[in-house]
Nucleic acid binder design. Structure first.
Lengths: 249, 249
DNA sequence: GACCTTAGTGTAAAATCTACGTCAATTGCT
DNA sequence: AGCAATTGACGTAGATTTTACACTAAGGTC
């Protein structure tokens, strides 16, 4: 029993990778650390888990303290536990990713965050983040890419009413590819997971588009009986290349 | 700083879900616990992680101590951290699943395992396991089902030389469905991931089948350039039902 | 050599996926 | 009022993939 007590000297934390979508870009929320270690560096929002707190509760708490948001999409992704990942001792961290509608959203920096700011994922990936947060971000971004092909999680990133073009741009930003407009629409509509709201966009300087919302109930029904939601990218390489040029230029 | 030290009172463990395949059944290795808590109950093999040990190292260690196997397929799946999941204190556990060839294999029960035994997954799922190990097993089994559809991990469960029928039975056992023989073969062979060994089964009381091995190198090449490996079950409901009857009867 | 068991194979019909071009509705500018 | 600019909406033909399905071949056993 005494030996066992030697093991009870570790801590664990949760880190949230909070994705949002705005102006055609996929973004991630980072905080500028207000305390050592890594003071002044950008980091993923996270915190130590209280001894009597469940992991998911902790992830929700961090999200709430930082953003004021509750009941948003949150999913455990991976646990990072390299021995030397934290300078203060053995701390393993459980990464959660979260998808939020940026529009809903007021950043309310908590005590441990001097400053919170949306970064495009591209920029965050080249930034030097605190701890092993670059690893974590990359892993979670890859998970998002995979997730979005098999579950309609993407809808969590859009406002309640959206156009098909907005939805397509979202998928293109996440998958970093270009999709064919007509095929995308056909595919999405054939799933019957969108509700046609019979409303139109307003105040846009061009032909207004129809607005849709996501039919969650219907999706849950389908999911219950085993249902795969997949989006494939164009098989023609040219399209993909064209998009990569777009990203760079 | 003093407050922070309150957090450093937790421990974490790894639990291994070791899958094997034998006699047409998917199996999982359980140990009968030799010490409290849960003495005498079946449990997943696991251990506390040493303070200076990486998670993956710990998972490999547990596997090695129990089975003598090294360098087998091992993948992190999920972290379980309910506050009350361990009676001795706050212990979160990181679940890894592992795929081994039962043939390779001699169980060498370590100090913490009185007895290790292969259980069919079906039976293990209805057994009352120690801690939250039923949860863990179910989660990992679902992950295996998904994994096997997109990556050729199944090969890890077979001996180095196998027949197409053995491969098909493996998939059927994992997916709990029935697959069409000709379509399965066509699909598998069209991936060009199997090496035809130009050898035949011997000593079987029927027409001997060709032996194949898995072409790992080729797979890694494909994987590197983004490649999806998918097996779908029959869309005709009847086939599935027929198989479910088989499972029950 | 009869019979039992599993191995091995092809095809046609259906479903899905891919590439692609034109007219429509609105705003803003002149 | 008319025109330019912008994005929305839509269908089809050809290619590819998926599905369902049944008979002969090879070896072992008795």
């Amino acid at each position: 029993m005494n030996e066992v007590s030697n093991f009870f000297k570790s801590a664990f934390s949760v880190d949230n990778i909070i994705f949002g979508f705005d102006e055609g870009d996929l973004k991630v929320l980072l905080i500028k650390r207000g305390a050592d270690p890594f003071k002044g560096q950008w980091a993923l929002p996270g915190d130590l888990v209280y001894p009597n707190e469940n992991l998911e509760t902790a992830a929700n708490r961090v999200l709430f303290e930082l953003t004021g948001l509750q009941k948003v999409y949150l999913e455990q992704v991976y646990t990072f536990g390299a021995v030397d990942r934290h300078p203060l001792g053995r701390v393993i961290t459980i990464a959660y990713f979260s998808l939020v509608k940026i529009s809903d959203f007021v950043i309310t920096p908590s005590s441990f965050a001097q400053k919170a700011k949306w970064h495009t994922v591209e920029k965050a990936q080249v930034e030097t983040l605190a701890f092993d947060h670059n690893d974590i971000l990359n892993t979670c971004f890859n998970t998002l890419k995979t997730r979005v092909r098999f579950r309609p999680v993407g809808f969590e990133l859009l406002p309640p009413k959206f156009t098909l073009t907005e939805l397509q741009h979202l998928y293109e930003a996440i998958l970093r590819t270009k999709l064919d407009k007509r095929n995308f629409r056909k595919k999405i509509l054939s799933m019957h997971l969108l509700i046609d709201l019979n409303e139109m966009q307003e105040g846009v300087p061009h032909r207004p588009a129809k607005l849709y919302s996501f039919d969650k109930e219907r999706y849950f029904k389908f999911e219950a009986e085993g249902f795969s939601f997949e989006l494939k990218e164009s098989k023609k390489k040219d399209q993909k290349r064209r998009f990569e040029e777009l990203l760079e230029g």
